[in-house]
Nucleic acid binder design. Structure first.
Lengths: 206, 206
DNA sequence: TAGATTGTTAATCGATTAACAATC
DNA sequence: TAGATTGTTAATCGATTAACAATC
């Protein structure tokens, strides 16, 4: 177990899918699950599922499959979701507000705990228990709340600048919704998630 | 040119990135661009860019690179973005509303033209010039407005059912924001884009 | 012509899948 | 024990990258 190959991003992206599936099984009081059945339900190859899981440990029982609760706990641990993950969100436009509201209900231990905006008119506005802060306050708040993850929902032109500020404040992981390519140092993980680009790619399939 | 290999999804996803980059060059009055320079700016391998583009035609000029305007027009055509693409959005919660507002400004020929919600309280509400319709009206509206693309922003439990209704109405491409795996027939393209899952995967990198 | 850069082939890299010995 | 299913190796598939002849 626990080889020291760098684990491919594509594997990491599947882990939350497995986790969500397992949590559904828990609710249905199902105690064990085979890679075969998982594969059918998730439209994945069973060998791939076994291989993914075996990177992190021998979680299965031969002849029986995986214990649902145990595996779901393992995955939670691997992803680091066993403790709350505080997030800073920058950009309180429509999308920012929506994500903020959404997160108050949904959230599975990833929690938006600070809101920022560059526009004076937005500062001081309240969403639930959170008040929108100015960008000047970013470094202090990030430090105080030990925030390591940031979400960017500002216009494209402002995105890189905001990213730089987040990175300078010590943020290590960024989820960027602005339609702009963001550059960062190698030790910072940037994930782009841009609706416009996605829609344009999908247009191809029509 | 135009081989009859099925073009990989991963190539299609890069096309809008190229397109956006080229549009920025147009604005800066740059007339030609080499794959070398593109690669540097987009953090991609130049050979990959050339290979991607050559699937669709010989767009470049040897010794000179690509004509920016010409290439951007070609890509627009390939993606089918030269005509407006009407979209139906189902689920007027926070996220649905945000996407709807966002699309009114941003949009690059992908345009939300119909809104739906399963909740009676939402029906009749207006967003810009669009009024939220009931799910019963979906088939008729999709047909009338020749809609082929749908966006799902309903809660997870409702997602598959909504997808089925979209597909039955003739929708061919679905962008799903609900944290649920959606199944559809082979001739329907489903793209999942789930913030919760993305955040959970990113948590791993902390 | 000389320099630059394409389009494409071949080499490499990495991810998926099949197959099966190990074992519960 | 017999049946089921894992973990893992080897085979396959597919995508990325290097290299270079063709040519503007």
């Amino acid at each position: 177990m626990t080889k020291f190959h760098k684990i491919p991003d594509v594997v990491i992206k599947r882990l939350p899918v497995y986790l969500r599936y397992l949590q559904q099984l828990v609710e249905r009081d199902i105690e064990t699950i085979s890679s075969q059945q998982m594969g059918e339900d998730l439209n994945l190859n069973p060998a791939q599922i076994r291989k993914d899981l075996s990177i992190f440990g021998d979680f299965g029982v031969k002849g029986m499959g995986y214990r649902v609760i145990e595996l779901s706990e393992k995955l939670t641990g691997i992803l680091g979701l066993d403790k709350e993950i505080p997030i800073a969100l920058v950009g309180m436009g429509n999308l920012g507000v929506a994500l903020c509201q959404y997160n108050r209900y949904q959230s599975a231990n990833t929690r938006i705990v600070a809101l920022f905006d560059g526009h004076p008119s937005k500062i001081g506005e309240k969403f639930g228990s959170l008040e929108v802060k100015s960008m000047e306050e970013l470094p202090a708040v990030v430090k105080e709340k030990k925030i390591k993850m940031g979400i960017i929902t500002v216009p494209a032109q402002a995105a890189q600048n905001v990213a730089d500020q987040l990175i300078n404040s010590g943020i290590k992981v960024i989820l960027n919704f602005a339609p702009a390519l963001i550059q960062g140092p190698m030790d910072v993980k940037v994930q782009n998630s841009d609706v416009t680009t996605e829609l344009q790619a999908l247009a191809y399939y029509l």
